[in-house]
Write a protein that binds this DNA or RNA. Structure first.
Lengths: 160, 160
DNA sequence: GAAATTAGATATGAAAAATAACAATGATAC
DNA sequence: GTATCATTGTTATTTTTCATATCTAATTTC
């Protein structure tokens, strides 16, 4: 692994850009790795006309029938106003249903439709392939260790 | 580690939001962990009046005296027009100098000033503390494994 | 029943990022 | 040498994303 973030075009002044200081930070590697994942995932979801947020929302709704928009917004760490447009889109495409909750008529009860579940299944398969591609070279233990480390970092939020 | 992304407010319909499907994806954990890192890093850099992008740019300039804006943009994976405003800010605050290159009078030769290097040193110390906080609970090997895995994922980009 | 709270929607604004087009300079082809 | 082409940085513009404030209808609290 060379000590460079990218190649330079010019022969003068600076040949390669050194990121030696940044390399010391795990956050730097997380950002760069996530950029790659996000970019590839976006391409992976394109054929299904899904974006990262709509894909995530669809899965959570299917896994949690009767979910409310505000619960979904909380789970996805986005603001309620921004959730509206995502749910709007999923409903317009008839991937989810949006019925008034029986117990609380302010709230919606979100559920995946058959079409939504079918599209989601296909998308999940594609995302699994995408991950297999990106994680190629990491054995099972390494992936488990990666996820464990990421979960630990994430847990730092609720604690401190 | 419970199988929930967040707690619900209502006793009806759904009590907890299950993210069991998403938990299977490393990308999901990367996104959530990175959100925590980014949020904490933003707070960490606030006292120095630095954002993630200005902090990164400042470090790269200091580590690579004579750097050009386009090289910096390449290294940071941002578009050249967006680099302009970042360099503008660093120059306005006199954290960097921006002289015409001797060899190519179209380009600028970017260098850190004394004030820039001093501010950067302080910021780096704060970021080191921030990382120590977030990585607390991971031993040295775990951190090394994390970074190794992230580097491998990142390398998938240039290859495929 | 009045006041406070909550779910969702709307409108708006701020920040980040991408695209197109331009002037100045440099490199290349002939 | 000159014409053509490519590159550096800039400007202008747009899109996208994300956050805030406010509104309604419904619910809860007292």
């Amino acid at each position: 692994m060379p000590d460079t973030a990218s190649l330079s075009h010019s022969p003068d002044d600076v040949i390669r850009v050194s990121d030696k200081t940044l390399q010391n930070f795990a956050g730097y590697h997380m950002k760069r790795a996530f950029n790659v994942v996000q970019s590839d995932l976006t391409k992976t979801l394109k054929p299904f006309d899904l974006r990262m947020l709509t894909y995530t929302a669809l899965i959570l709704i299917i896994d949690n029938p009767g979910l409310r928009q505000s619960q979904l917004a909380d789970a996805m760490d986005i603001e309620r106003p921004n959730m509206v447009v995502i749910v709007d889109e999923l409903e317009r495409r008839e991937l989810i249903s949006r019925d008034r909750s029986e117990h609380d008529r302010r709230a919606y009860s979100l559920k995946g439709t058959l079409a939504g579940r079918q599209l989601c299944d296909k998308a999940i398969d594609a995302v699994k392939a995408h991950e297999a591609r990106l994680l190629k070279g990491l054995d099972e233990d390494a992936v488990a260790g990666l996820i464990e480390a990421l979960q630990l970092i994430q847990a730092r939020t609720t604690v401190g």
